[in-house]
Measured scan of single mutants.
Amino acid sequence: EEERTFTNEEEARKAKKEAEKRGLRVTVTKDGTTWRVRIG
């Protein structure tokens, strides 16, 4: 499991799409101005 943080919503969405392409489970949460993308 890996967690990545982004300040840019577009980049967070891109990371989510890429992980889904690899067949991984992805959770995206917004924490104030930060987007957290949890993969795995």
Rank of each mutant, 00 (worst) to 15 (best):
E1Y: 15
E1D: 11
E1V: 14
E1I: 15
E1M: 14
E1N: 09
E1C: 15
E1F: 15
E1T: 13
E2R: 10
E2T: 12
E2N: 09
E2W: 15
E2A: 08
E2L: 13
E2K: 08
E2P: 06
E2F: 14
E2I: 14
E2V: 13
E2Y: 15
E3F: 11
E3A: 05
E3I: 14
E3V: 13
E3G: 05
E3K: 03
E3Q: 06
E3L: 11
E3H: 06
E3W: 13
E3S: 08
R4E: 06
R4G: 05
R4A: 07
R4D: 03
R4V: 10
R4H: 12
T5M: 10
T5N: 05
T5E: 08
T5K: 05
T5L: 12
T5W: 14
T5G: 03
T5P: 02
T5H: 08
F6Q: 00
F6S: 00
F6H: 00
F6Y: 12
F6P: 00
F6I: 01
T7R: 07
T7G: 08
T7P: 08
T7C: 10
T7M: 10
T7K: 07
T7A: 09
T7N: 10
T7F: 11
T7H: 09
T7E: 10
T7Y: 11
N8M: 05
N8L: 07
N8K: 06
N8V: 06
N8F: 04
N8A: 04
N8I: 06
N8P: 01
N8S: 13
E9K: 07
E9F: 14
E9G: 06
E9V: 08
E9P: 06
E9T: 02
E9Y: 15
E9D: 03
E9S: 06
E10I: 10
E10G: 09
E10C: 13
E10M: 11
E10N: 09
E10A: 12
E10R: 13
E10S: 10
E10Q: 11
E11T: 04
E11L: 05
E11H: 05
E11Y: 04
E11W: 04
E11M: 07
E11N: 05
E11R: 03
E11I: 02
E11P: 01
E11A: 09
E11Q: 07
E11G: 06
A12S: 02
A12H: 01
A12P: 01
A12W: 04
A12C: 10
A12L: 04
A12V: 06
A12K: 00
R13V: 13
R13D: 10
R13T: 12
R13Y: 15
R13P: 00
R13I: 15
R13G: 06
R13W: 15
K14A: 13
K14W: 10
K14F: 10
K14M: 12
K14I: 11
K14S: 10
K14V: 09
A15T: 05
A15H: 08
A15Y: 15
A15F: 15
A15Q: 03
A15K: 02
A15S: 04
A15G: 01
A15L: 11
A15D: 02
A15V: 08
A15R: 03
K16F: 14
K16L: 10
K16G: 13
K16N: 02
K16E: 13
K16S: 10
K16W: 14
K16A: 15
K16H: 07
K17L: 14
K17R: 13
K17T: 12
K17M: 14
K17F: 14
K17E: 15
K17G: 09
K17D: 14
K17I: 14
K17V: 13
K17N: 12
K17W: 14
E18R: 05
E18Q: 08
E18T: 06
E18S: 06
E18I: 06
E18F: 07
E18Y: 07
E18G: 04
E18P: 00
E18A: 09
E18W: 13
E18H: 06
A19K: 02
A19H: 04
A19W: 11
A19G: 04
A19R: 01
A19N: 03
A19V: 03
A19E: 02
A19C: 11
A19I: 07
A19S: 03
A19F: 12
E20H: 04
E20M: 08
E20R: 05
E20Y: 04
E20Q: 08
E20K: 05
K21V: 09
K21M: 14
K21Q: 12
K21T: 10
K21I: 10
K21E: 13
K21D: 13
K21A: 14
K21R: 13
R22A: 10
R22H: 08
R22Q: 09
R22S: 06
R22P: 01
R22K: 09
R22M: 12
G23C: 07
G23V: 02
G23N: 04
G23E: 01
L24Y: 11
L24Q: 06
L24G: 02
L24W: 07
L24D: 03
L24R: 05
L24H: 06
L24V: 05
L24F: 12
L24T: 02
R25K: 11
R25V: 10
R25P: 06
R25Y: 11
R25G: 03
R25L: 09
R25W: 11
R25E: 07
R25H: 12
R25S: 09
V26T: 04
V26P: 01
V26N: 00
V26D: 00
V26Q: 00
V26K: 00
V26F: 02
V26W: 02
V26E: 00
V26S: 03
V26M: 03
T27G: 02
T27R: 07
T27Q: 06
T27Y: 10
T27A: 05
T27F: 09
T27D: 04
T27N: 05
T27V: 10
T27S: 09
V28S: 00
V28F: 06
V28T: 03
V28E: 00
V28Y: 04
V28I: 15
T29C: 09
T29D: 05
T29E: 09
T29H: 08
T29Y: 13
T29K: 06
T29V: 12
T29I: 14
T29R: 07
K30Q: 12
K30T: 14
K30N: 10
K30I: 08
K30L: 11
K30D: 05
K30A: 07
K30P: 04
K30R: 11
K30W: 15
K30H: 13
K30F: 15
K30Y: 15
D31T: 09
D31M: 08
D31N: 07
D31S: 08
D31W: 07
D31V: 13
D31C: 11
D31A: 06
G32Q: 04
G32R: 02
G32M: 02
G32H: 03
G32K: 03
G32I: 01
T33I: 10
T33D: 15
T33V: 09
T33Q: 13
T33F: 12
T33K: 11
T33G: 13
T33C: 14
T33P: 14
T33H: 12
T33S: 12
T33M: 11
T34I: 15
T34V: 15
T34G: 09
T34P: 00
T34A: 08
T34Y: 14
T34E: 09
T34W: 11
W35F: 05
W35N: 01
W35M: 02
W35K: 02
W35R: 02
W35Q: 02
W35T: 02
W35I: 05
R36D: 01
R36C: 10
R36P: 02
R36Y: 14
R36V: 15
R36K: 11
R36Q: 05
V37C: 04
V37M: 07
V37A: 01
V37Q: 00
V37D: 02
V37Y: 01
V37L: 12
V37W: 02
V37T: 01
R38H: 10
R38S: 10
R38L: 13
R38V: 14
R38A: 08
R38Y: 12
R38W: 12
R38G: 04
I39L: 05
I39F: 08
I39W: 07
I39R: 01
I39M: 06
I39Y: 08
I39H: 02
I39P: 02
I39S: 04
I39A: 03
G40T: 14
G40H: 15
G40L: 15
G40Q: 14
G40D: 12
G40S: 14
G40Y: 15
G40E: 14
G40N: 11
G40M: 14
